[in-house]
Each structure stands twice: as C-alpha cells, then as structure tokens.
Amino acid sequence: MISFLLGAAGFVLMTVALALVVILRRPAEVDHMMAAQLLGTGGGAILLLLATATETPPIVDVALLLALFASFAAVAFVRSAPGQESEV
C-alpha cells in the first residue's frame, strides 16, 4: 500500500510538472496565473498521499496551508496583472 501511494504521489507530481512546463512556457500572462491554482489541487493531492503513505498526520496541515495560500496567491496575481490599473 505504501509504495502504491508513493507511486501515485510521484505520478501526480509528474502531471503537475508537465502542466507547469506547459503553463509557464505560454506567452499569455493569464496562463501563468493558473500556476498557483494548479499547485493548490495537484500539490494538495501529493501532500495528502505523502501524509498517508508516511503516516505523518501533520503533513495534512501543510496541504491545508498550501490550499489557502494558493488561492491567496492567485488573487494577488489577478489583482496585480499588468494592464489592470488602466481599466478602473
């Protein structure tokens, strides 16, 4: 079971890595803004899998903070995106 959960965490990490490469290589800034959200879901899944696999419940708290700050970062990105102030 432990190696299965770790393998799943590794698999999700791989898909997150691929998605990050795709997002960050695109020219449009809005694509970059999706990166924080991607880590909120993908990073959360990886951490929850690690917490169960290594039987370390405090890791679940890291997932909680990651979810909270990923959405905070996404709001900050949207707020400070270039061109935002010209549209007041």
């Binding site: 990050l20 960050l24 970059h32 803004m33 990166a35 924080a36 880590l39 990073g43 990886i46 951490l47 690690l50 890291v62 903070l65 990651l66 700050f69 990923a70 970062a73 990105f77």
Partner: peptide, 13 residues
C-alpha cells in the same frame, strides 16, 4: 514573481 511563488509552494513539498 509567478515563478518564484510556484518555487515556494514546491519547496514546501
């Protein structure tokens, strides 16, 4: 900056 934030979130893992 977006790269840096992503870097920070990954570093926590």
């Amino acid at each position: 900056v977006i790269g840096f934030v992503v870097y920070g979130l990954l570093l926590s893992i």
